[in-house]
Design a protein around this nucleic acid. Structure first.
Lengths: 226, 226
DNA sequence: AAGTTCCTCGTACACCGTAAGGGGTAGGAA
DNA sequence: TTCCTACCCCTTACGGTGTACGAGGAACTT
C-alpha cells in the first residue's frame, strides 16, 4: 500500500488561496495538541479552516495520511545535538528531547503505535541519532542497536508517563488512585504500598534512573562493539 | 470518571442464556486478535454473537469499557515466575513473557496507550513483578523504579517491533523499506546503510541486547538501593 | 473564444456508538 | 389464580464519522 511520502504534494502553480497541505497540517496539529487524537475529525478540521469538509481531500488523500503527516511534523521539532559532541552526552540530550516531545504532544505516541510512519523528518531524526554513535567508532549494527535500545526505553516510559499525566482536554482521565488502592489493599498490599510511596511519583527522577541504567549498559558494551 | 472496575458486573441470578459479560469479552478478544483494534465495532461483535447490537449494553456499559476489560484479560495470561526465583532470572523471564504477550496481541499495546487501564489482572501482574525485587531486599521505591525501567524498555521495544511485523489482518501494512531506502539514499546514507544491514533485523537479538543493558544497569545499582 | 488545469464544494452512502424505551420471560407474593 | 418485580433482549432513532462521485468555477494557455 502506497504511503503519502511516495506521492508528490500535488503541484500548485497558482498562488494557493487559503487552503494548502501545509495550512491543513498546521491547523490539524493545533487541534491535536488541544483536543487529542480521537476528537479530530475531517469535518471539524475543515470548519476550523473555514472550508467544506471535502475540500481537504484535494490536498490530502485520506485522514490517516494527514495524521502521518502530522506525526512526521513533530519529528521535525527534534533539536539536533552539537555536531562534535561525544556520544554519551549527545545521546542523553536527545533522549531528554524525545521525552519532552512525547509529553508535549500526548497524541503523538498513540499515533506512532497505530500508523507506522516513516516520513522524511523521522528519517532525519534517526539519522542524527546514529551519527554520534558512528563517530565514536561503533559499527552500523551496533549503533542501531544502541539507539534502538535507549529510544525504546524512552518511548515506553513516556507512554506510561503520559497515561498518568493526562491533563484537561484528553480523551480519558487518569484512574483514581485512591479508589484503586482501596480496592486492592488486602489482596495486593505490596502494590498498594508502592502506589502510596511518594518517591514512586517523582517521574523526572524515575526517568533519569532508567536512562542511567540503559546508558550504563551501553557504555559497558561500546568497547566490544567497535 | 468512574471506570468499569468500580461497578459490579451486574448481578445475574437466573442462568445466563447465550449472552454474558464473559462471553462478550471472549468473542471480542477473538476478533481483536484477528482484525485489530480499529476494525472492532459493537455491531459486528453483536452479529458474531448472534445478538442485536444494543443487547451488549446490558452486560457492558460502553465500548471503551469493553476494551478495558479485554486489555485486563490479556494481563491475566501473564505467567508467574517461580515463587523462590532470584530477582534477575525472574525479571528476565517476565520481560520475555511481556514481549511475547505484546507481539501475540498487537492491538494490546495500542489500547494501553489509549485507555489507561488498571484492572485487577494488571494489578496482579505488577504485584508479581514487584515481589522478587522486594524479596531481594530492595525498598519499595527502588523495586518500583527497577520494574518500571525494564518494562518501559520492553513495551517501547515491542511497540516498535510490532510496527515492523504487522501481519495480515492488521490495520496498516508495514512500510516498504526498499522504497524508503531509495528515497533517502543520497540525503541520509547512514540511515539507508542501517536499513540494509541484516544484523539490524535480528529482532530477537536486538531485544536481548537491550534487555541485557537495562538489567546490567539495575544490577549495578541494586547494592546501593537496598 | 475555447480548452485545460487546478481547486472547492454539495450530495449521498455506509458505517459508527448509544440513548430511550418497549416487550417478554421467570419467579415470588398475594 | 393474578400481580409484581427483576432481568434480559430487542427496535427504533439520533447525531456523528470518513469519503466516493461528480458538478461547478476560476485562472491561465492557445
Amino acid at each position: 500500500m502506497d504511503s503519502v511520502w511516495f506521492g508528490k504534494p500535488r503541484p500548485s502553480s497558482g498562488q494557493p488561496l487559503g487552503l494548502s497541505r501545509e495550512a491543513i497540517v498546521r491547523k490539524a496539529l493545533e487541534m491535536l495538541d488541544e483536543h487529542g487524537l480521537t476528537k479530530l475529525s475531517m469535518r471539524k478540521l475543515a470548519a476550523a479552516l473555514g472550508a467544506a469538509p471535502m475540500s481537504l481531500y484535494w490536498h490530502v488523500p485520506t485522514k490517516d495520511a494527514l495524521i502521518e503527516l502530522c506525526v512526521d511534523e513533530i519529528y521535525g521539532d527534534f533539536p539536533l545535538p552539537a555536531p562534535d559532541a561525544d556520544w554519551e552526552p549527545a545521546l542523553r540530550e536527545m533522549m531528554h528531547s524525545l521525552r519532552h516531545l512525547a509529553l508535549k504532544h500526548p497524541w503523538w505516541l498513540r499515533a506512532i503505535g497505530e500508523f507506522t510512519t516513516i516520513g522524511p523528518k523521522a528519517v532525519a531524526m534517526a539519522d542524527s541519532m546514529l551519527e554520534p554513535m558512528l563517530r565514536a567508532g561503533l559499527t552500523t549494527a551496533a549503533a542501531a542497536q544502541s539507539v534502538s535500545t535507549v529510544s525504546s526505553f524512552v518511548t515506553g516510559y513516556a507512554l506510561a508517563e503520559a497515561n498518568f499525566t493526562a491533563r484537561g482536554g484528553m480523551d480519558s482521565s487518569p484512574p483514581d488512585l485512591g479508589k484503586i488502592a482501596d480496592l486492592y489493599r488486602e489482596k495486593h498490599p505490596r502494590y498498594v504500598e508502592m502506589l502510596n510511596d511518594p518517591a514512586v511519583w517523582t517521574l523526572e527522577g524515575q526517568f533519569e534512573f532508567g536512562l542511567d541504567c540503559v546508558i550504563d549498559g551501553i557504555k559497558a558494551r561500546v568497547a566490544a562493539l567497535r
